[in-house]
Design a protein around this nucleic acid. Sequence first.
RNA 1: GGGGGCGUAGCUCAGUUUGGUUAGAGCACUCGACUGUCACUCGAGAGGUCGCGGGUUCGAGCCCCGUCGCUCCCGCCA
Length: 563
Amino acid sequence: MTDPLQPLATSLRTHPCGALRAEHAGQTVRLGGWVHRSRDLGGLVFIDLRDRAGLVQVSFDPATSPAHVIAAATSAGVESVVLVEGTVALRPEQMRNKEMASGDVEVRATSFTVVGPAVTPAIPVARGKGEKMPAEELRLRHRHLDLRRPELQANLVLRHRLMQATRRFLSDRGYLELETPILTKPTPEGARDFLVPSRMHAGEMFALPQSPQIYKQLFMMSGLDRYFQIARCFRDEDLRADRQLEFTQIDIEASFVGREDVMVMAEGLVHALWAEGGHAIKVPFPRITYADAMERYGCDRPDLRYALEIRDVTAAFAPLDFVVTKSAIAAGGRVRGIVIPGGGGWSRKQVDELEALAKSAGASGLLRVKRTGTEYEGPIAKFLDDAAKSALALNDGELGLFVAGPDRTANPALDRVRQECAARLNLADDKALAFTWVVDFPMFDQDPETKALAAVHHPFTSPNPDDMKARPGAPESWRAAGADVRAARHHGPGRAGAALRLPARGAAGGGPAARRDRLRLRPDRDAARRRDLAARRDRLPQDDGGPRPVRGGTHAGARRGPA
RNA sequence: GGGGGCGUAGCUCAGUUUGGUUAGAGCACUCGACUGUCACUCGAGAGGUCGCGGGUUCGAGCCCCGUCGCUCCCGCCA
């Protein structure tokens, strides 16, 4: 690959500042940049000059720089835009700076011109080690200053490279980069549309698409076969730290493909993108079914960097004369929980905190028992007979935490407790990514009271064809023909590994009426969707998949997080 | 829509618990000193409607009421 900085030479400069290295020693160079920081030692002055490529130290020494040049450098304020001419010189051995990419050299200035004198910046650009960032509001108000920071520029550069890598990868595999309209009719998706008033049609609104769901399928019906788009998406929901009004997603659709084709392609793209970012990740990703994930981790996006798996101990509690578990089991629930090595040493207060967590997630309580030697302690210990003790299989020093009740409430509670325990025990490897596929999601979630069905994912995923054939009258039991990529979250600003989601897609299943019902279409609205469904009668290519969106990490300069 | 937190110098923050002299620190800024620094160092200086409005009080940055802004969480959201 050609050096991406090489073309930066112009009639005014010979090199970008940050590109200078020992190999340039002896050359006369002209530079343009911003005064990042300066150090006046009295007669000897240093300026760290900054541009997009990085920093370089410019020295102003009476032995090499004319007096008026030194005077000009002395009075130049930080963030002034300057032009410098000088000679690249190797620094004396002791004066090299290993923390600076250009730290082996400096530019000995023979000429110095301030082309843009700066006022004191409203927020500091150069930041010392350990200094905090200004408030988000101020950073956004003075965005031009904020974006001068090398770390933010690095984000934008990475974003650019990821986009180029995406285009390269997909184009090489026959995907066409096509665009779909931004101003559309409102659609019955999950997130609320951004609405834009129309001048020509007073009282009516356009909607900005939360994602380009609809029109891309026209491409498939039309026979374009493979499409992708690095698409801007919009949603009018309340914000969170990791949720933005607008964001970018890589949207892909393909025809004549099966689930394996989609998964292999998606793994390849994820692999290529992380490789571009300097991370080697292993493919294929391990796979886990939704049912397995819920059973072992209580969560459809388990953090697989650590085990701490959920156990079913219903059999141990079933014979016991203990009202809590007895009534839960009688009502069709189970008793499940996790066993924590070393948890026996946790204080009453620490365990109470876990119980509060479980309760806030919907559990009625958290049963606890710890084993010390042959002794069992805790509120439920007195109910345990020898058979139950051996069934629990607690080792010395271990703490057992259990939830009794229906999976529907126990799962989220156990998930929260498991994650908190892992955090306390520092079980997760910060550097690990733990990519995994979660497959065989249920198609629908059924409200236990109203029996109403709601799509677990977006409602346009195809049901598993085998399930549809086997139990045509029981859509609540169907699995979806989709799969999600999950990655354990990283913690810390700017390092969030995105949660990637790649549900496959297709028709909603059932007849047109059932589809309409499931999609919650209103006959008087949703014209675009109705037209789409109608067009399906003209036949889609066999299609259980065009993965939707690889999400996350592509929105420049902003805090990143799972979508 | 609901709940919590915050708002003091250009920036980051102490000070509010228990009201009491002239509201402080670090960085940045200005001036001065300093010839190998790299968050240079040292000395001096300037810089404040304590978010805004009202109230209680002899006296409010501090207590009370209202209001605006920011932020986090729940709801919502893929």
